[in-house]
């Protein structure tokens, strides 16, 4: 029996390489793999018969089975590789223009995009984000900002009230006072937040909007620093070529006070409908912190000076993107929101 098996192995060893080489497709190679080394293949069968061979002949035959099996497996592998290479090189028929599987990324709200940009520009200049309550006491919203009861500047805004002593903040400025109470100078903060005005909602007006407030108090802070900081901001936020204009104005909590205008972002100052043919857009209010405000937080105005600024971002964002109705920001129609980056 051993001799027969050895013969058969020799036959396999003689024929298999040529047969495998002659295969024309991976399917044929697979068929030969099954024929030789599959669970019912010829080599496998011989291997199983080893048990029935007399013990002294077993090692010799076993060695031969191993040799032939290795030879066949190697040839099969070579043949397989040959077909794989050919498969990879063959032109595939795939419609590469069919849309891929969607992976939906979310988006920020346009007002957040603006707030984030503003915050990051001021962060780069060393300002830290701070925050405060929207239901604010009259003290912080008015009094400590140098607007005692019956002050005419209280008419500059129409304020919502929760009780006669508790307005909804009409500006982010109360956070200035709260932050100064918390610490000694230097103070360099930026406050993005929601503020409220008692206005009828229309295409041009909303009763709540976002403001960014800034405050910098230290020794030797001057109006020149105010100008430098806000010019830098405007050029980064709008365009390096943007021109910036400082115009005296009035806010009860700053003295001197200024409005900051930038050359119109649409017409670049030549005059258009957006800037009402003035060439300038009013985007910021600012000024040197009024000594009276320092009095409320117990800073010595002889030692410290500072500047503060505030800007609404809703209108600027409208102008920037040509949004004609402020309510779009608050309705959240997906077809509107999905247009932003």
């Amino acid at each position: 029996m051993t001799a027969e098996l050895l013969d058969e192995l020799d036959r396999i060893a003689a024929q298999a390489p040529a047969r495998i080489d002659a295969c024309a497709s991976p399917e044929e190679v697979e068929a030969l793999r099954v024929e030789y080394v599959g669970t019912k293949g010829s080599i496998t069968r011989i291997n199983k018969l080893l048990r029935e061979v007399p013990a002294d002949q077993r090692p010799g035959l076993g060695k031969r089975v191993g040799e032939v099996r290795s030879l066949v497996l190697q040839k099969l592998q070579e043949a397989g590789q040959k077909f794989q290479v050919e498969e990879g090189a063959r032109r595939q028929k795939i419609d590469i223009t069919l849309p891929g599987r969607t992976f939906l990324l979310g988006r920020r709200h346009p007002l957040t995009i603006a707030l984030d940009r503003i915050t990051s520009i001021f962060s780069d200049m060393g300002f830290t984000v701070a925050d405060g309550p929207e239901i604010e006491s009259e003290y912080y919203n008015f009094e400590a900002l140098n607007m005692p009861p019956d002050h005419p500047a209280r008419d500059m805004t129409d304020t919502y009230y929760v009780t006669p002593r508790w307005p909804l903040r009409s500006q982010t400025s109360p956070v200035q006072v709260r932050e100064m109470e918390k610490r000694r100078p230097p103070v360099r903060i930026i406050v993005p937040g929601k503020v409220y005005r008692n206005e009828d909602v229309s295409a041009r007006a909303m009763n709540q909007f976002f403001q960014v407030e800034g405050l910098y108090v230290d020794r030797n802070v001057t109006f020149a620093d105010l100008k430098g900081t806000l010019e830098t901001f405007c050029k980064r936020f709008f365009d390096p070529k943007t021109r910036v204009r400082f115009r005296p104005s009035y806010f009860p909590f700053t003295e001197p006070s200024t409005e900051v205008d930038v050359s119109c972002i649409l017409c670049n100052g030549s005059g258009c409908r957006v800037c009402k043919y003035a060439g300038w857009l009013e985007i910021l209010g600012a000024g040197m912190v009024d000594p009276n405000v320092f009095g409320f937080v117990d800073y010595d105005p002889e030692e410290y000076t500072g500047f503060a600024f505030g800007m609404g971002i809703d209108r600027t964002t409208m102008m920037r993107y040509g949004v004609d109705d402020i309510r779009h920001f608050w309705e959240n129609d997906m077809r509107f929101l999905s247009q932003f980056e």
Binding site: G126, P186, N220, T222, A224, K227, T229, E231
Partner: peptide, 15 residues
């Protein structure tokens, strides 16, 4: 106001 110079980075505060 346009006669007042602009100063950038005059005094630093550690963020």
């Amino acid at each position: 106001f346009d006669q007042i110079p602009s100063r950038v980075g005059g005094v630093g505060v550690p963020p």
